[in-house]
Design a binder for these strands. Structure first.
Lengths: 243, 243
DNA sequence: TAATAGGTTATTTGTGAAAATATCCTATTA
DNA sequence: TAATAGGATATTTTCACAAATAACCTATTA
């Protein structure tokens, strides 16, 4: 067996192997290392992640509930397919949730919230500068700070469920963003300007303006991805699609 | 080993034991047979459901993602606690989602949708009559038809994710309803009147009115449950709460 | 040549038991 | 008496292997 992780390095690391595997698989799906529609054979995954089949099964079951893996009956697991219709659905849903959340956040705003927003913006802004000059290499770090900024904006909404559902939608949209990453370059300048506008609106505690910018930001973000590298069939080799 | 289920009785029954167990556990949590905060020891569950520990683990992991079970670290699983704050959160969330969904449904309305709504209302209405005279015995059937009616109302919204999230919130609110079932009698007449109003508004395709009634319906439903039989601690017997 | 039946392989599903970890009880000491 | 250390028990976590099922290939027939 592989050695267990350090007993509590940062106090928050997941001590169980199953949780660690869950995070790894999830990450591999979100980054596109595991492509949409790809079949997830247990033995192959066992080799790749070096854990037992049962642990994988537990992990995959959780990912099914999170909408990242599909399970159809007795024919195993696969990465959920990607489609333009799905992307549209996710985009609309994320707009609904995030707009509502920022409105609530402004309602309940306090100094703590403001500070979190400012701090998150600072990190994001800095990494954006770095990426500007060395694109490609710091992509994942930028994505992390991007998420943390959006999370900070809604962090005072006071609804655990709203945060949860928003997180799911953010993950889903992130996957589509990652799938398109290699094809088109992201319009960084425009994105930076919008983040700045979000910060300003938040500090001004202008809920309407904030929600409007959020909606526009999300819409624009989603418009970039066309169906170019979404679908790829998992390469069914059997000539028997069964009717 | 226990025998497997019939190979496809109604064409929709889950063929795998894990899925069946998932449904059973989920049902037991929603009906309150497993109380909030109750510790879910694997061996005890193994006896109760007659499946192996691994299958249970898979099942429980899925329920964690669905927000019905909590998992804290290496200390096993438990039914998620219930609280008034959580109920309020769920109620607001369900209002947001269901109102949006009925509005979209009216937008995309067609004859198929209308028929589904009418059919679901008919079933619900009939079982309501039955329950009126023999309360208590047909409770679960009423809950089933209630859910199907609400599902029919939003079934034309065109958003898979909206349906999914609404389903989660409906489950959660159902759990609270079931927890309060033994204490207070449900105001059946008022509920019936509201269902009738929902049907009328749907057939009139009046989105605004429909959304307004939905919001009121959900709010009233949630106001009934006070914190009487929510919390019950799982009876920690160890005197060492560790700081 | 197309289609089907049979057997073979690949994959999933489920079980029991071992290792790791937490919890609990008891006795010893200050 | 209170508190701590040590060992015993209970529980979770993980694995390796067996049964059940689906996928695949080949040969035989119409």
């Amino acid at each position: 067996m592989t050695e267990r992780s350090q007993p509590g390095e940062d106090g928050l690391s997941a001590p169980t192997l199953a949780e660690a595997t869950h995070a790894r698989l999830r990450s591999d799906i979100l980054t596109g290392a595991l492509r949409p529609g790809e079949r997830l054979k247990l033995e192959a995954l066992r080799d790749r992640y070096d854990v037992s089949v049962n642990t994988l099964r537990e992990t995959l079951s959780r990912l099914v509930s999170e909408g990242l893996v599909a399970n159809q009956g007795q024919r195993g697991f696969m990465v959920v397919a990607a489609s333009l219709a799905d992307l549209r659905d996710i985009t609309e849903m994320r707009k609904l949730l995030e707009c509502r959340a920022v409105r609530l956040s402004v309602e309940h705003a306090d100094l703590e919230w403001e500070s979190r927003v400012v701090a998150a913006y600072h990190k994001l802004s800095r990494i954006e500068e770095v990426v500007e000059q060395d694109p490609g290499h710091w992509g994942t770090q930028l994505e992390l700070y991007n998420r943390q900024f959006h999370n900070a904006l809604i962090s005072a909404c006071g609804s655990r469920w709203l945060m949860t559902f928003h997180g799911v939608m953010y993950d889903q949209s992130l996957r589509y963003r990652m799938l398109a990453f290699r094809v088109r370059d992201f319009p960084r300048e425009q994105s930076r300007a919008e983040h700045r506008a979000l910060l300003d609106a938040a500090l001004a505690r202008d809920a309407e303006r904030l929600a409007a910018i959020v909606a526009a930001h999300i819409t624009k973000g989603a418009e970039l991805y066309q169906e170019e590298n979404l679908s790829p069939r998992p390469a069914r080799r059997g000539p028997k699609p069964k009717k």
